[in-house]
Amino acid sequence: MEYFDIMNSACSDVGLSMDNKIYEKFIDYKELIKFWNEKVNLTAIIDDEQIIKKHFIDCIKIFKFSPLKEAKSIIDVGTGAGFPGIPIKIVKPDVNMILLDSLNKRINFLNEVINKIDLKNITTIHGRAEDFSRKSEYREKCDAAVSRAVANLAVLSELCIPYVRVGGYFVAMKGPSVDDEIKEGKNAVSILGGKIEDIVKIEIENSDLNHNLVIIKKVKETPKVYPRKAGTAAKKPLK
């Protein structure tokens, strides 16, 4: 129970609760990350405490944006090792979660995590974000999209906003300095049917780590021409 108190404190800070069962899921998840990381490049962070703070607590803090607690369906675009989707699912088990990633090795890892820590109503998708948001069963079907992927806001918005229903949210997890990205991505967000509603500052317990949540509300339908074909958003971001 070495990290229980700090994780409990993080949950309390965002209005959620931590119990032994939830905590054990996180610890099992941590061990799976460390085991799989030896054969699949999941993360450069392999120290126990750093995994807890920089990955798990960092992801739990997404609930600083409290309307996310009301979301019944969330898609995590470019989930990688499951961040923030799996921590969200562990602390909010009633949400329907979709984890999307383009690398099959990571999907295999995520499927093992889901199986080993017994998560329900969670789906993995192997593919490009641009391809699946064109399918009618995914397009504008989710209450929220979340992403901690490394891409600028204009690119991420084109990959994520098409999944969100009108009235829902795209929450982008960003580093401490986002002002330039927001300035450069504001028009792209608008083109895609979104509106930047808020920037929420996040601090991590017992550390000097901090970041921002960029809150984008879906205010109108995404034009059918978006997203453009795979790879275009990164090469020619919307301006």
Rank of each mutant, 00 (worst) to 15 (best):
D5L: 12
M18T: 09
K21D: 11
K25M: 06
F26A: 01
V40N: 01
A44G: 15
A44Y: 05
I57D: 03
I57N: 06
D58L: 10
C59T: 01
I60A: 08
I60M: 14
I62H: 02
E70C: 06
K72M: 08
G82H: 02
G82Q: 07
G85A: 11
P87Q: 03
I88Y: 07
D94R: 10
K105A: 01
I107C: 04
N108Y: 13
I117G: 02
I122Y: 07
T124I: 03
I125K: 03
H126N: 15
F132E: 02
K135H: 10
K135I: 13
R139N: 03
R139H: 08
K141S: 07
C142H: 13
A144Y: 02
V146S: 09
N152I: 09
P162I: 00
V166S: 06
G167S: 12
G168H: 06
V171Y: 03
M173T: 06
S177V: 14
D179R: 14
D180I: 15
D180V: 15
D180G: 06
E184P: 03
G185H: 02
K186A: 14
N187F: 13
S190Y: 11
I191F: 14
G194K: 03
E197S: 13
I199S: 10
E203T: 15
I204S: 09
N206H: 09
D208I: 13
L209W: 05
N212P: 07
E221V: 12
T222L: 00
A233P: 00
A234W: 01
K236I: 12
P237L: 06
